[in-house]
Nucleic acid binder design. Sequence first.
DNA 1: CCTTACCCAAGCGCACCGCTAGGCTTCGGC
DNA 2: GCCGAAGCCTAGCGGTGCGCTTGGGTAAGG
Lengths: 157, 157
Amino acid sequence: MLTHKTRYALRSLLYLAEEKGDRPVQLASIASSQRVPPKYLELIMLDLKKAGLVKSVRGPRGGYRLGRAPQEISFGEVVRAMEGPIALVPCASLNYYAPCGDCHDEATCAIRRAFAILRDRSSELLEGISLAEAASWEKADPALANGAAAGATERPA
Amino acid sequence: MLTHKTRYALRSLLYLAEEKGDRPVQLASIASSQRVPPKYLELIMLDLKKAGLVKSVRGPRGGYRLGRAPQEISFGEVVRAMEGPIALVPCASLNYYAPCGDCHDEATCAIRRAFAILRDRSSELLEGISLAEAASWEKADPALANGAAAGATERPA
DNA sequence: CCTTACCCAAGCGCACCGCTAGGCTTCGGC
DNA sequence: GCCGAAGCCTAGCGGTGCGCTTGGGTAAGG
């Protein structure tokens, strides 16, 4: 399960992605529209900023904008920035590897292997979904919500 | 990340799957071979028993065996029994659905949709890996560990 | 120079995780 | 027929991390 923090981050980033004007969006506006506790959102935005996913402008009329074009920010990157590893066991993580100490031999461990495959597929999928694409879903007809979508969301066979 | 409990459960079940004789395996034997704290393993085996994944025999010479043939027990089932939902957000879970309350409209929520796709793929994969298959991996040549394997483990294109 | 907004550190309550303690029940064997 | 080996079960405990708040600090526009 993702933490609340990650979900808040995704919602806020989606909101920024949908924002049209080039004026930065204030935290208070994000917080109220996405129903995130404002002070908590500060922490989240701080993390997102450190990860380069948003840029901030200080002072009056300040606020936040995306650090990159919404096509260039993937769900995978957000999850990794907020949550840490995508793999479900530490020994199967690429970016946050740690020995799990459970098995006798990591090289042959079936658990590691199974979850390494899962990690591959998960990050492949999550990296294929950009904020831009996700934002476009929210505007589409709900009736299409389970139908076909672009690239990464297609199921192979 | 999976909890320790789930990983212990998987290791213990794999151990049972590899066991040949039809005598039940004692908890102490599982615990020492898999390096799981024995009293903690008791709790785990209890949960596995409630889930029907193992059967127990009481009294002297008692112990545990698999509740079903190792081909019939999947990683997915074990994870669900120990961990709960496989989905990363509650509103995208099939077996443990709960509204997340984050978005304004679940039907169009891009986050829900993205993680529903991920949940589909994950459970498809985890349900395709049986204890029997996993056990066979551990016996195979480590050099093959990244190579081809049966059915569920194949990557599509 | 004052107000607006973001920056940042500290801390709090709670839940859950990993594990232990200690007793109870079943059942084979002498 | 009772002893002891094994599983069954409940309670609880220390630690960690999550969700959120408090309370300030600092850049910058009017």
